[in-house]
Simulated scan of single mutants.
Amino acid sequence: MAGDPVGAACELEELLAVQGDLLAAFDPLRLATRHAFAYWKAEAGDPGRAILLLTELLADQAGILGPEHPQTLVTRHTLARWKGAVGDRGRAVVLLTELLADQTRILGPEHPQTLVTRRTLARGQSRSAGEDV
């Protein structure tokens, strides 16, 4: 579905329904699909819904995978990014600052995900109010 975020979101929503019949609610594969679905919902023009989905997913991931699991950290980054995209730049910067501290401790300062968060945070802090993080 290259170049078709609406189509990607629809496909992932259908996949989630199938996974619901086959996998436990908190199966890691299903959690990963939920993340992809939320991401593509945002890309398809519904970042508000994506934020709700990511917030629910983050709670589930923290409880099932643990707060330090790499996928939980990725969801935190995605959530912060979309918070900034909808105009909640201050909250996005706070979330990214907290995430960066945790990634540095857990993954290390040179880890690619840590560096991506550092870059995203620097971009968010350097932009004027109202711009995407």
Rank of each mutant, 00 (worst) to 15 (best):
G87K: 03
I106W: 01
E56D: 15
P109D: 13
W40M: 05
L115H: 13
T114I: 11
D27F: 07
L100N: 12
I64A: 07
V18W: 07
E131M: 03
L99Q: 13
A62K: 14
L99G: 08
R105K: 13
T78V: 14
G108F: 07
L121K: 02
R118V: 12
L99C: 11
Q61D: 13
D4W: 11
R127D: 00
R105M: 08
Q125E: 08
L52D: 06
A9E: 02
L58Y: 13
P70T: 11
R105S: 08
V133S: 01
L16A: 06
L23N: 06
G48I: 11
V116I: 14
V74L: 13
D27Y: 08
L54H: 05
Q113V: 01
I106K: 11
E13V: 09
D27I: 07
L52P: 01
R127K: 04
I51L: 15
H35K: 10
L53W: 03
V94M: 10
A101T: 14
E131C: 01
E11F: 15
A85H: 03
D4A: 12
T33P: 07
Q103L: 12
A24G: 13
D60N: 11
P112I: 11
A25M: 10
E98A: 02
L65G: 09
G7E: 06
R81A: 02
L95A: 06
R105G: 04
R81D: 00
G7K: 08
D132S: 01
V133T: 02
G48E: 10
P67Q: 08
A101H: 11
L52M: 08
R127Q: 03
R34Q: 13
E131F: 06
G45H: 00
H77V: 01
T104N: 06
E13D: 14
L73C: 10
G108H: 04
G84E: 01
T33Q: 05
W82Y: 12
R91M: 04
E56I: 05
A8T: 12
R76Q: 15
I51S: 00
E131Q: 08
D60F: 06
T55Q: 04
L53C: 02
G45P: 00
I51F: 00
H77P: 01
G45E: 00
E11M: 14
F37K: 05
G20V: 13
G7R: 10
C10K: 04
L107Q: 06
V18P: 03
D4M: 10
F37Y: 14
Y39D: 03
T117G: 06
G3S: 07
M1I: 15
T78N: 09
P70I: 15
A36H: 09
R105I: 12
E11H: 15
T120H: 07
R127G: 00
A44L: 01
D46S: 10
R127C: 02
L100Y: 10
L107V: 05
L29V: 14
T117V: 14
F26L: 12
L15Q: 15
G130N: 01
H69E: 08
A24K: 09
